[in-house]
């Protein structure tokens, strides 16, 4: 059977509301589900797989603190789908003010919602920002996501890695080392530690940092299986005066290292098809999701048949 695009979004939102999420947070999570369906065809499956644990998801369990310039989000035992949007907001706010924003978030070990994490890069790009998201869970479960603004949809690349990326490990070390007053300082401290290939084309500090970040983001740090479950989000505002002019080329080259790239025309074609033909879903999956989503509705009761409410039909 098929659902309309609107139904995918509405059902997802209702499920999160039924699980106790506030309206805005439920909508943000529904957007992640929809992005996963749109780009990977697995959003509804992800939602279905989450149903059993949805009641345990709690946006209120997230806390934040700062390590110098870096917001650190303690995700408690929550999966990345819960912490993705709030982390992105923190990151975007800093990027739009200072050109670059960086945040670190811990997630539940065994987080099985990482398929939706690309939505963070997508949403950053929709806000006009470039982004790199470095994710690791177990030693062999790591992914680097890169996002860039484009029309009609952002470009989002994902590189599956056999180990947490070098950039991820180094940035965590730098966060642990102590406060840095500026995210660029922290990245410089993290990424310019030891030998590395110098990019002669890169002239400014920001260009060198970006170039090194993109290189290290897709290089597995085989010797660092100890990276805790979590993700680093880095956003760049391309319109900010501090940001390098040649970043677009660097991002494109970084995207080449991705194992899976969603390009605007591909996403647009699929979005158009889903809009016209609907989204395929197994009836059993739909029935489970539908029943769960119905918990936002008041149960049937005797008064239902007397009128729509006090004095309304009288």
């Amino acid at each position: 059977m098929r659902l309309s695009v609107r139904e995918v979004f509405d059902l997802s939102e209702r499920c999160f509301r039924a699980a106790g999420f506030a309206d805005g947070a439920a909508r943000a999570n529904a957007e992640s589900i929809w992005w996963t369906e749109l780009t990977k065809g697995s959003g509804l499956t992800l939602l279905h797989d989450l149903l059993d644990e949805l009641q345990d998801l709690d946006r209120g369990r997230l806390t934040r603190r700062r390590r110098g310039a870096v917001p650190v989000v303690d995700g408690d035992d929550q999966p990345s789908i819960v912490s993705g949007t709030p982390t992105l907001d923190l990151c975007c706010a800093r990027a739009e003010r200072r050109g670059l924003g960086l945040a670190y978030t811990t997630v539940a070990p065994g987080d099985d919602t990482v398929a939706a994490l690309g939505h963070v890069a997508h949403a950053a790009a929709e806000r006009g920002l470039r982004s790199v998201v470095l994710y690791a869970n177990r030693a062999d479960d790591a992914v680097t996501i890169t996002g860039e603004p484009a029309r009609p949809y952002p470009v989002v690349g994902e590189a599956d890695l056999a180990a947490p990326s070098v950039a991820h490990a180094r940035i965590l070390d730098a966060v642990d080392d102590g406060p840095a007053d500026h995210s660029t300082d922290l990245l410089t401290h993290a990424l310019f530690d030891g030998d590395g290939d110098e990019d002669e084309r890169a002239a400014t500090v920001e260009e060198r940092v970006l170039s090194r970040l993109l290189d290290d983001a897709t290089t597995p740090a085989e010797e660092r299986p100890d990276v805790p479950a979590g993700f680093v989000t880095i956003c760049f505002d391309p319109t900010h005066p501090t940001q390098p002019r040649r970043a677009e080329r660097a991002f494109r080259e970084g995207m080449d290292a991705s194992t899976d790239v969603r390009r605007p025309e591909q996403v647009d074609t699929r979005a158009d098809r889903l809009l016209r033909e609907g989204v395929e879903i197994e009836r059993g999956v739909w029935e489970d999701v539908f029943e769960y989503s119905s918990d936002v509705l008041a149960p049937e009761f005797e008064g239902s048949y007397r009128g729509a409410g006090f004095e309304i039909n009288e």
């Binding site: 999420f21 506030a22 309206d23 947070a25 909508r27 946006r59 209120g60 709030p86 907001d89």
Partner: peptide
């Protein structure tokens, strides 16, 4: 972040 109930 502190008040997700205000997001909407």
């Amino acid at each position: 972040f502190d008040h997700p109930e205000h997001r909407s």
